[in-house]
């Protein structure tokens, strides 16, 4: 690939591409991501729709919160069990909305660590109003909202602080 063919103007996501330079030598060129520059809107659209679909399922009791997050972070059932250090048979139960309630607090802490969310968010979905509609804080890019939701862990592993504030402009 020639240098001029490879260049993409997308400062938000830079990468190194190996290209043929004008002198015929091959070498690295810093450029933007082609797929992000051209298809980011489509990615965001699909991700939002997926979250809405899963949210509808979890709020109607069709799936458990564990399954909601598992699909959103694109983990397989086996990988979730391995990462959370919870037996597969137990994970299988917790994916079932009727048996989710059998999860212990310790197990929920382990799931929360894998999903990188506070334990409280396994029992609630934070929605932030952005561009006229409510969106999940889990998938919302901070720059797209005027509201900032900050959640910090306290010394008590079961308690988190949630602070909601307007972003300074």
């Amino acid at each position: 690939m020639k240098e001029k063919e490879g260049f993409v103007d997308y400062p938000e996501q830079q990468m190194i591409l190996y290209v043929e330079k004008d002198d015929g030598n091959y070498g690295p060129m810093q450029t933007g991501s082609y797929i992000s520059a051209n298809y980011m809107d489509d990615y965001v659209y699909k991700r939002r729709n997926l979250e809405i679909d899963l949210r509808n399922q979890v709020t109607s009791g069709a799936i458990s919160p564990i399954k909601y997050y598992m699909i959103l972070v694109d983990l397989s059932f086996s990988e979730l069990a391995a990462r959370a250090h919870i037996r597969k048979s137990r994970v299988k139960k917790h994916l079932d909305p009727k048996l989710f309630g059998s999860a212990t607090m310790e197990e929920l802490l382990k799931y929360a660590a894998v999903f990188n969310v506070p334990i409280a968010n396994l029992l609630q979905i934070l929605l932030v109003k952005s561009n006229g509609s409510f969106e999940s804080d889990f998938i919302l890019e901070p720059k797209s909202s005027g509201i900032m939701v900050g959640q910090s862990q306290t010394s008590n592993p079961y308690v988190i602080l949630t602070k909601i504030e307007e972003k300074s402009r």
Binding site: M1, G6, I16, L17, Y18, V19, Y26, G27, P28, I35
Partner: peptide, 17 residues
């Protein structure tokens, strides 16, 4: 093939270099 740190074309461009 392109974005996850391959240097383009699934490492083929970097291997050519």
């Amino acid at each position: 093939l392109e974005d996850q740190g391959t240097g383009g074309a699934g490492f083929r461009f970097m291997y050519a270099t």
